[in-house]
Amino acid sequence: MSENNHHISSYKDHLLVLLILIFLTVITVAITSIELGPFNTAAAMLIASVKAAVVLLYFMHLKFDHKIYRITVGIVLAIYAAVIVVTFFDYFYR
């Protein structure tokens, strides 16, 4: 069982990751309170995606797990993104 002798994240790393996440949250709030037109939503979603990636890689340990986990998570998210794009082929062109 490969998982037994695997990498254990240190407490300090967890706290660092937490600080980064809170920092990104503050930035999101700040950015959305100034006027950027359509870029507000884009920026908010971009930062949310970065935060999600940090949670997945560090808290959920994907960075240190077998790469097959990273690949499947990637494929699943890609399929979901593609479904959204295909749905909007309807709404954008209606």
């Binding site: 959305t32 507000n40 908010a44 979603m45 930062i47």
Partner: peptide
């Protein structure tokens, strides 16, 4: 659960 909230927060509270 945290991951989902990361998206819910900007989508509902921070619309500009």
């Amino acid at each position: 659960v945290d991951l989902i909230w990361i998206f819910l927060f900007p989508l509902f509270y921070l619309i500009h």
